[in-house]
Amino acid sequence: MAGRRLSPAIDIEKYLRKRNLPHIWCAGCGNGIVLGALLRAIARSGFRQDDVAMVSGIGCSSRLPGYVDFNTLHTTHGRAIAFATGIKLGRPDMHVIVVSGDGDATAIGGNHFIHACRRNIGITAIIVNNYIYGMTGGQVSPTTPKGSRATTAPFGNAERPFDICLLAAAAGANFAARTTAFHADKLEDLIFKGLGRKGFSVIEAITPCPTCFGRRNQNPTGVDLMNLIREQSCGIEPGGKSEAPAGIRLGVFADRDEKEFTEIYAEMAAGAGR
């Protein structure tokens, strides 16, 4: 089967703030792949740069908005979605995108995350899940697999990880899907799909962090981790059941078309006798 190329005709350079390059990410990091997929999906969506607001929290992946030429907001740890909620309510016509890591979105920002899902506000959240706190040097995160080692889990993680997509689906997001940095074209497609949704959409990208996760877990290079991600990836049945529960379950976990929050708000305001 001749695989589809990664939208080769799309020029993403116009979206880059080249003066801020090179980026801070390590060799073997998956953030660059996510950045590429995100920019291609934005290009395919036909958004004007002036109409896009990109918001992030704190962490390696949260540096992404600094490299792209949109209305960009680098906020506090975990709070990107809260700021993004204000932007979307302030300007419902704008395309608001949040980029957040696993610790940022599901530990310190977990509350904001589930409430954005519940509100079903028109924000597309790209959750870059590398299973670890990379920027602070490799501490255990809410998505670190049980048993994996981290600087604060030297004997292996004793805690169970969150399933971000199931969490988003249960909390009410219109769209929740997971893929990996290995599946870069799929990632682009899912982000494109998410950007087209009116409600809250979550696209979780599993990414390699050789520096902080791989080195402590027998996969010291980006290639090692990419191979591991590839081997462990498996699809899900419709409805979210997996044939291989131990693997990385990829697919669409929520796909609804419930009304978006700012639209409901506008209708309510009109009904209130504006």
Binding site: V55, N71, L73, T75, T76, R79, I81, A82, F83, A84, T85, G86, I87, L89, G90, R91, M94, N111, H112, H115
Partner: peptide, 13 residues
């Protein structure tokens, strides 16, 4: 925390 964050986001618009 979210309240002031949202207010700052809206202020930027």
């Amino acid at each position: 925390i979210a309240s002031l964050g949202a207010a700052i986001g809206a202020s930027l618009t």
